[in-house]
């Protein structure tokens, strides 16, 4: 009885496999093409470089530390200036010392968070904008010939904005004394990583 059941099941499975084999389409090595591919590729680009990632999170944290209007003006201005820098990189306009500036951005922004630097809004905006230009340029130079530029742009900008949002969410811990210490600790860690990246950039590692 059991053997019959097994044989019957095997027949059904065999027939199913044969049917699937007959209806199989051509295999694609890369499924992420077109709009989906552009979106995924653009979204992952800012997340794959640690130096970019920590600086963008630091912008959000520093904005949260500075309060209004910096908490929302810095993340609004950063994507626009960064995209402008990216555009310069895409069309091939050179910008010197990009890697050093990016490393400095992590050091300065992380340091600002760690030391609770209460910079005037205009000074914070200038600091963030200058660094955004370099970050954008570095991305722009590395950008591939995107199959779908619009999708790539949407993914890229969304990821950058979400990294800022992460920073702002981390900054929400500032409400509690322990949270404030933790946030400053995160800033110190970002600054330390910035030191390492600066060392590597200067020595050309």
């Amino acid at each position: 009885m059991t053997t019959t059941c097994i044989l019957r099941a095997a027949r059904i499975v065999g027939a199913g496999v044969a049917l699937l084999t007959l209806t199989a389409g051509a295999a694609s090595a890369h499924v992420q093409t077109g709009v989906a591919g552009g979106l995924v590729s653009g979204f992952l680009h800012p997340l794959t470089g640690l130096d970019h990632l920590i600086a963008m999170v630091a912008v959000g944290i520093w904005g949260a530390q500075l309060g209004k209007p910096a908490i929302w003006l810095l993340p609004i201005s950063f994507p626009m200036v960064m995209a402008f820098g990216g555009a310069l990189g895409v069309i091939g306009v050179p910008l010197p010392y990009t890697e050093i500036a990016i490393a400095l951005s992590a050091l300065v922004l992380g340091g600002a968070v760690a030391l609770r630097w209460r910079a005037p809004f205009w000074a914070a905006a200038i600091v963030v904008s200058v660094f955004a230009l370099f970050h954008g340029h570095a991305h722009g130079v590395e950008l591939p010939n995107a199959a779908n530029p619009a999708a790539y742009g949407v993914g890229f900008v969304s990821a950058t904005g979400l990294l800022h949002l992460c920073g702002i969410v981390i900054g929400a811990a500032l409400r509690w004394p322990l949270g404030e210490r933790l946030v400053r600790g995160v800033g110190a860690a970002i600054a330390a990583l910035g030191c390492f990246f600066l060392y590597a950039a200067v020595l050309g590692i």
Partner: peptide, 30 residues
């Protein structure tokens, strides 16, 4: 009030996407 700010942030993202699209179009033209 944050809701108005959220819409403005969306505007900045849209401008940023447009900026990149302009660059891609310029590069393709070049």
């Amino acid at each position: 009030g944050w809701r108005r700010i959220a819409v403005r942030a969306a505007g900045s993202w849209i401008a940023a996407v447009g900026c990149m699209l302009l660059a891609f179009a310029l590069r393709a033209g070049v």
